[in-house]
């Protein structure tokens, strides 16, 4: 672990990826959950492409060195290697930046993992615009769209550290391959582990019913959406909130329930408004012939700007106040 010792600790103002790991409980949750299920006997192996510090898998590597494979900066090889491992009965967890894993390795995921029906778990971390000023190449605003179009692949965007842990536990015995979309591990806590004891892929979580509007949020957007909804409810607006953590298979029943009263629906995602959660919800509504209006809120169909993540969230209206403003617009339209 010589490399670890040479890392220079910087001040809190310094914005280095490695230092921020200490403040990234979500990423600790990844390694800790993997350690837990491995200790319980799940046939886990973990792979990453020169990113064990960025995704926190270094903790797993220290605990289970023989089960950890650093595959270097060869992501396509890594995904196919994982598929090969899975043919023997192992459950490989492959972690890499969400900006690269589902895009660079899309065809390996489709052909070697999903078409081949192998239970590989793909963890796309630092999804959306969380890598801020590292640049647009490092932003992942297409990953839901791409993975959602791949048959036989479960797609989940856990809300917080507790849900990441719960969804990793839920993956034991889940036969389909899974794409996990996670942020930078600093998403605020929304749930306690106890609240997620019954977590199931494909079963959305209702926070509130709403007669005036229903917000459907996923992943990192649940926390700011909850903040916005609470404020509006405090003013007497009956705004609902549904946590759509699983994008595929999507909880059709919950969407149809949300639209049953005719209130407008607002989807919120840290993703291009094309092809992601909003699109998935619109498909369900259209199939059913629903008359509910749908507002798809997210990154418009552009390449996201460079800037610190908090500034970017404000710019795209993806923080509490921005989401609140969008909901108000919809309430005013009636």
């Amino acid at each position: 672990m010589a490399a670890q010792q040479t890392i220079q600790r910087t001040t809190a103002e310094s914005w280095t990826l490695l230092d921020l790991l200490d403040q990234a409980p979500g990423l600790h949750a990844l390694a800790d959950a993997l350690i837990e299920i491995t200790e319980e006997g799940a046939p886990v192996v973990a792979l990453t492409g020169d990113l064990k510090y960025s995704n926190g898998l270094v903790r797993y590597a220290e605990r289970f060195p023989e089960r950890f494979f650093n595959m270097g900066i060869s992501e396509q090889n890594m995904v196919s290697v994982a598929a090969g491992m899975a043919t023997t009965g192992l459950t490989p967890f492959v972690a890499d930046f969400a900006s690269f894993l589902p895009l660079l390795c899309c065809e390996q995921i489709r052909t070697d993992v999903a078409y081949s029906q192998l239970p590989v778990r793909l963890i796309g971390h630092h999804a959306g615009i969380t890598l801020g000023f590292y640049g647009t190449s490092h932003h992942a605003t297409e990953d839901l769209s791409i993975t959602r179009a791949i048959a036989n692949l479960t797609v989940v965007a856990p809300t917080d550290a507790a849900m990441l842990a719960a969804s990793i536990r839920a993956s034991v015995g889940w036969e389909q391959p899974i794409y996990y979309r996670i942020g930078r591990g600093r998403e605020p806590d929304v749930y306690t582990p106890a609240e997620l004891r019954d977590f199931e892929f494909g079963r959305a979580i209702w926070h509130h019913w709403g007669g005036d509007a229903v917000v459907i949020a996923t992943g990192s957007m649940v926390a700011p959406a909850a903040e916005a909804v609470e404020r509006l409810r405090g003013e007497g607006h009956e705004v609902g909130l549904l946590d759509m953590h699983t994008i595929k298979p999507i909880d059709r029943q919950a969407i149809l329930m949300a639209s049953a009263g005719g209130a407008p629906l607002i989807t919120v995602e840290e993703h291009n408004t094309v092809g992601g959660l909003g699109a998935a919800v619109s498909e369900v509504l259209a199939d059913k012939g629903s008359r509910s209006r749908l507002r798809r809120h997210g990154i418009p169909d552009v390449y996201s700007l460079i800037g610190p993540p908090t500034h970017l969230y404000r710019h795209y209206g993806l923080e509490g106040a921005g989401i609140e403003a969008v909901i108000r617009e919809e309430l005013e339209r009636g």
Partner: peptide, 18 residues
């Protein structure tokens, strides 16, 4: 893709003592 897959099988086999 095939060489990567074959490599994955060998690495997995090694872990399982095969």
């Amino acid at each position: 893709h095939a060489l990567s897959a074959g490599l994955g099988m060998v690495l997995a086999g090694r872990l399982d003592g095969r």
